[in-house]
Simulated assay, not measured.
Amino acid sequence: MNTRLDQLYSLRRNFTIIGLTGRTGSGCSDLAEILSMKFTEIENIRLPSDIDESVFQKKYAIAYNFAKENWKEYKVIEYKKVLLLMLLPKLYMNPSNTLLFDFFRYRLKDETSKDQILKIKEQIRDLIIDNIVVR
Rank of each mutant, 00 (worst) to 15 (best):
T98M: 06
M1A: 05
L5G: 02
K121I: 10
E69Q: 14
D115C: 00
E69T: 15
I45P: 14
L35A: 04
L127K: 02
Y92E: 05
P48V: 06
I117P: 03
L100V: 06
N131F: 02
S96A: 02
Y60W: 12
R135Q: 12
D115L: 00
Y64P: 13
T3I: 11
S26K: 11
K72M: 05
R107M: 13
R107T: 10
K109R: 15
I62V: 08
L88D: 05
L83D: 02
S96Q: 04
Y106W: 13
P95D: 03
R135I: 10
I62W: 11
S96D: 05
N14Y: 12
K80W: 14
I124W: 09
E111H: 01
G25Q: 13
E53T: 07
Y79E: 05
K81D: 04
L5F: 07
R13F: 00
L5Q: 04
P89I: 01
Q123W: 02
R46K: 14
I77H: 11
L118S: 09
M86G: 02
F66K: 08
L83N: 03
E111C: 00
A67F: 14
P48H: 09
I62Q: 12
L8P: 05
L84F: 04
R46V: 04
L8V: 04
K38W: 09
L8H: 03
V134F: 07
V134E: 06
M93P: 04
V133W: 01
K114R: 12
R4A: 08
D115V: 00
R135Y: 11
I18Y: 06
F39K: 13
M37I: 03
E122G: 06
S49F: 08
F104D: 10
I128A: 00
L88Q: 11
T40A: 14
D50Q: 09
S26H: 09
D50Y: 08
E78Y: 15
I124L: 08
E69M: 15
T3Y: 15
G25V: 13
K75I: 09
N70F: 14
S29Y: 05
Y9T: 13
A63N: 13
L91A: 06
R4I: 10
N94P: 09
S113I: 02
L35P: 09
L11S: 00
Y74K: 05
T40L: 11
T21R: 10
M86V: 02
E122R: 10
S29C: 07
F15R: 07
S10C: 01
D30I: 14
D102H: 12
M37D: 03
M1H: 11
F101Q: 13
M93V: 05
C28V: 12
E43Y: 04
R4S: 10
F103C: 01
I128P: 02
A67E: 10
L84G: 02
I18E: 05
N65S: 14
N131V: 01
Q7A: 04
I117R: 00
E43A: 04
M93A: 11
I129V: 13
L83S: 02
T40F: 11
F101N: 09
I124D: 05
L84N: 03
L100A: 03
S10V: 00
G19D: 06
E41R: 14
Y60S: 09
A32G: 15
G19W: 12
